[in-house]
Design a protein around this nucleic acid. Structure first.
Lengths: 365, 365
DNA sequence: CTGAAAGCGCTAACAA
DNA sequence: TTGTTAGCGCTTTCAG
């Protein structure tokens, strides 16, 4: 089995490492190291020999050894809520692209909202000595991230973060997009708008709900607490929440959702109940995942650019890493905006309401 | 900045490493190593001291150093086609779970079907010294994986693999599921069934198509080449392919798709064309992603268990790693089976066809 | 059963 | 500019 070891053919079949390259190029390992790290002070002639040895041997450096000695793993952690929610793969893809461009690898952790898993993720990141972590799980117990501070590892959170050095926060401007959504609904004539939240212990689920309530108020509508249902940002959660609303004696005429998956779940609940979108209910999602364009009918939703999110996250992390001169504190928020598709329309009682201004009771069940 | 270095407080504020633990526990670093690696021959008294030192210091070993010396990174590579296709996150989730259970971390690579990206992925895996790689991208240029053979890194492929040591293949039994699908359609009365393939350079897209053709034949139906359209396993691809079919003078009455995303794209194309599923077209997907249950109407599809796939992939890899005694060659195929939901029904011309057996022409456009 | 010591492959002083 | 050498934090002989 251990062929190369049991047959020490002197030079011939040695392992492909920096020494092998050095031997073949007839230089020292230091020169090899300098060459492959593009240190400018290497004699071009030697460099050429090194490069051709590298090519012939098909050599590449051992990341572990490199990391061990340099203290930098060139790994960025990315912690997301739930990899099966399509928003996150889209985020991951963008994040990875930016990271790889900048010479970093990413280590993904999916928490599934479970505290134990989150702990495990944090630990894995620490063990692998990531150079930075983006916690994109929209609200998390920060205690678990104290160790990162101890180890001087930058962390970027979303929406809110503990204030400490090397930690920054990506602020999302939920209000603009949600306001546009509420306005849109109001203009169509909706006065009774329900909201299905995400898991409320997630800070940004809370933020989205707060933004919704706020926008309702500034639009002059009032919120019926019965129509604010807690969901969990999953398809099942959306379906269940909508079923709860359908069990209510009074129905809203429009539903906003804390994310698109919830909205798709709602569409399904409505389909099962033989109710039509947007004829019986108007529906607005949040995130604008690619799928939103493909639901039937296509989902009106609030777009949050995950490309932006990813780019900003990586930049924030790296700016802490490369002892940046001035803090390029870019406090601008991540913007959101409404994308109108086909799940929003006039409220069912619009025609009836128009002539007489009477407040009709909704049909029940 | 470098507090701990500039202030060598003897014992007090030293870095948290194996030496720190050893010092605090008053043992040698070798004993610490043995203890945390659960070598059974450690004196319980010393072990206890070590563990409490570990706890107090909140110590955990440096994976890099460990990997460097042991030669095992405890990393498993997982290469997928496209992380934004929901099938893959589901796969990743399962794979990660199994891997973590077994003490491995995973490194994800998403190829996006681009050769350059695949190369990059392969290289990243090599650089990070993964202990094994699962190539779940359903067909890939194996040349890129030769280096893994050189480095004795096991690789598991899907559907087909180069035969070499340390490489195994996960065979999926496409026929059973697809046959059930074709049968189901045939029983409903469909005689004209179209198929939208995946990217045909992917081996398993080819395999699915071949299985379909095969099943058609053994059901006694014949395939119209015009109704076999190449898609690309994406939403957009499905929509485009269906639009091509709709442009044909003759329509099939049912469509099978190489994956669920394609089917969702088809549903969208039909929606745009004001055609109904299953009234105008019956539709069958493949994969049974979670979303399939939530489309409108819910998608009839062929289930392939990604849990199975993940489990088998990890097992195959690990069995190569731990010098397994006998090869536990489990040549059983990954099974597939039909899940009937609501996108399949009687063909549009069923009633008309029943009385007179005449072959009517389909309405065009 | 324990500790001292030799590296794993590489980078970063320091010398030449 | 180049080579020599000392570790990075850990596992693993090998003596004791």
């Amino acid at each position: 089995m251990k062929r190369s070891q049991s047959t020490p053919k002197s030079e011939a079949a040695r392992k492909i490492d920096i020494r092998g390259v050095a031997a073949k190029a007839r230089v020292s390992i230091a020169t090899v190291s300098r060459t492959i790290n593009h240190v400018p002070t290497v004699d071009p002639v030697l460099a050429a020999r090194v490069w051709s040895a590298v090519a012939e041997l098909n050599y590449f450096p051992n990341t572990q050894a490199r990391a061990l000695v340099s203290g930098k793993s060139k790994l960025l952690g990315l912690i997301v809520s739930e990899i099966t929610n399509p928003f996150f793969p889209e985020l991951i893809q963008e994040f990875e692209q930016v990271a790889v461009e900048r010479g970093y690898e990413i280590l993904i952790g999916s928490t599934n909202y479970e505290k134990k898993t989150i702990e495990q993720c944090a630990r894995r990141m620490l063990e692998r000595k990531v150079d930075g972590v983006a916690v994109m799980t929209f609200g998390i117990e920060e205690v678990l991230f104290e160790r990162f501070a101890v180890d001087n590892i930058p962390v970027v959170f979303i929406d809110a973060a503990p204030s400490r050095p090397l930690s920054s926060v990506l602020a999302v401007d939920y209000r603009t997009g949600i306001y546009e959504g509420v306005q849109h609904l109001a203009v169509l004539g909706h006065r009774k708008i329900g909201f299905i939240t995400g898991p409320l212990r997630l800070r940004s689920a809370e933020a989205r709900k707060a933004a919704f309530l706020d926008c309702l108020r500034s639009t002059g509508l009032k919120a019926d607490p019965a129509w604010i249902i807690e969901g969990d940002h999953t398809l099942d959660g959306g379906r269940d929440a909508m079923q709860k609303i359908l069990a209510l004696p009074q129905w809203p005429t429009a539903i906003m959702c804390s994310n698109d998956m919830t909205a798709i779940g709602v569409q399904h609940a409505l389909f099962e109940a033989k109710l039509k979108v947007p004829d019986d209910f108007s529906l607005v999602g949040f995130d604008d995942i690619h799928l939103a364009e493909y639901t039937i009918p296509p989902l009106t939703t609030v777009r949050m650019s995950c490309k932006d999110l990813a780019l900003r996250a990586v930049n924030d992390l790296l700016s802490h890493l490369q002892d940046s001169p001035a803090k390029p504190e870019a406090p601008s928020k991540i913007i959101t905006r409404l994308i109108v598709r086909q799940t929003t329309g006039l409220p069912k009682d619009a025609l009836a309401d128009l002539p007489g201004k009477s407040t009709r009771k909704k049909s029940r069940e």
